[in-house]
Nucleic acid binder design. Structure first.
Length: 114
DNA sequence: GCGTTGACCCAAA
DNA sequence: ATTTGGGCCAACG
């Protein structure tokens, strides 16, 4: 993964508003990355500056090792976990768009669509 | 090059 | 609701 792509990933994550969340796969899909693992990998080594707590797994559960801290941080900005799980339907920010439905909201991230 | 190892994802059982 | 299995892909030894 080149630096350029890494920067785009960081941009997207940094843009997630407080109180909203996104799945690793959402971000990967948004940028056209081949695998959601890449997002997790990036955060693992270089996520300290980013709002990493707003990124969770697709099922609404936090990353295994960071579960406590992540849920605590989310809670402090209004994202309530129920039984250790976040309701993605309510808090999800970015959505993966496999096939852009007509003139969709492509202006959300004009600089990232290439 | 090959085998492991992950802040992953999804369909099926 | 969980577990299993397959697919994914870069980094490391």
């Amino acid at each position: 993964m080149d630096e350029r792509t890494a920067d785009r990933v960081r941009e997207v994550i940094a843009a997630i508003p407080p109180g909203r969340v996104a799945a690793y796969g959402d971000i990967a899909g948004l940028l056209g990355l081949p695998s959601a693992r890449m997002v997790g990998r990036l955060l693992a080594e270089d996520g300290h500056d980013l709002p990493w707590h707003r990124v969770l797994r697709a099922d609404g559960r936090p990353a295994h090792h960071l579960a406590q801290e992540q849920l605590a941080r989310l809670l402090s900005e209004g994202v309530i976990a129920e039984d250790g799980r976040i309701d993605m339907r309510r808090y999800r920010w970015a959505e993966l768009v496999p096939e852009p439905p007509a003139a969709a909201q492509t202006d959300l991230f004009p600089t990232l669509t290439d």
